[in-house]
């Protein structure tokens, strides 16, 4: 290749790189705004979520959808893979959830509708999404949930007792067509915290290749059970950062918390949750 041609290609590559970096930053901005946009206010409790991608953008997803009957639909999901490909499918997942949440009765139906909507695309792409979906009923203080191959959330009470949610099985989105997802229900009491999360938390690694693991997470949650949901988020993130001690994050990290507070039920509880921008 001649010298002037080499310079031309170098310049072109430089421009391409700059353009790609700018577009990825814009994509990150879109994803962060969509993910971390609105946290709903609920009767007799509080909810919060946070997602930290391993790269500039990621494939983890959480969302809240206030239902007209006063319940709140919560979802957390993890798209196979990382980075830009996973982020593209995360947006697809968000669209499927919002559309399904509007037209389905419960979390099981929502997950079925999402699998029906996404199955062909995911199979064509050789990808999948694990997902956990739950409806919080503030009046009955019941959480009804369905699972598409996601890890079971944890529940910690005011006495620091911590356990996994009862197992409810279902195949991941994109695994098999025409799936039905069974539901389970738990009753929550004052001080309980439900902790939904993705595997990036328990699989975070330190420089010795050791993982953070669920046992460490359970200890941290038990110790912070008296804190507000946003404080618990910070405590978990700080604990992971202290554990990995500077080792670059390998996988996206996402958590959603629901904490039950004292009963202040009023006529307002018949209204939908309020979304704060």
């Amino acid at each position: 290749m001649k010298e002037h041609e080499e310079k031309y290609y170098e310049a072109s590559n430089g421009e391409l790189n700059k353009s790609l970096v700018r577009e990825i930053k814009l994509a990150r901005n879109i994803q962060m705004k969509l993910l971390n946009g609105e946290q709903p206010e609920i009767e007799n409790g509080s909810v919060s979520g946070v997602s930290i991608p391993a790269r500039l953008i990621g494939g983890d997803y959480y969302d809240f959808y206030p239902l007209t009957n006063g319940k709140l639909r919560i979802v957390i999901g993890d798209v196979m893979g990382k980075g830009i490909p996973a982020a593209m499918l995360m947006i697809l997942t968000r669209g499927a959830f919002r559309s399904a949440a509007e037209s389905t009765q419960g979390p099981g139906e929502t997950v079925t509708a999402m699998n029906n909507a996404m199955y062909d695309d995911l199979r064509k792409l050789g990808s999948f999404v694990t997902l956990f979906c739950a409806d919080w009923d503030p009046e009955e203080r019941k959480l009804t949930f369905a699972n598409a191959g996601h890890n079971s959330p944890l529940i910690v009470n005011a006495n620091k007792d911590i356990r996994e949610f009862p197992k409810v099985k279902g195949v991941m989105l994109g695994g098999l067509p025409n799936q039905e997802y069974p539901e389970e229900t738990i009753t929550m009491t004052e001080g309980d915290i439900a902790f939904f999360y993705t595997d990036g938390i328990v699989e975070a690694q330190n420089c010795n290749g050791e993982m953070y693991r669920i046992e460490r997470l359970m200890d941290v949650l038990a110790d912070s059970s008296s804190c507000e949901v946003t404080e618990v988020e910070d405590i978990v993130v700080n604990s992971i950062e202290a554990f990995v001690n500077g080792v670059p994050q390998r996988d996206d990290i996402t958590m959603v918390l629901l904490k039950i507070e004292a009963d202040n039920t009023s006529i307002a509880s018949y209204n939908s949750p309020i979304m704060n921008s």
Binding site: T130, A148, G149, N151, S152, K169, G170, M172, G175, L176
Partner: peptide
């Protein structure tokens, strides 16, 4: 088992 790998294999 949790993700559904065995269920997919058995069904297929």
């Amino acid at each position: 088992d949790m993700i559904g790998v065995f269920q997919i294999m058995q069904t297929l």
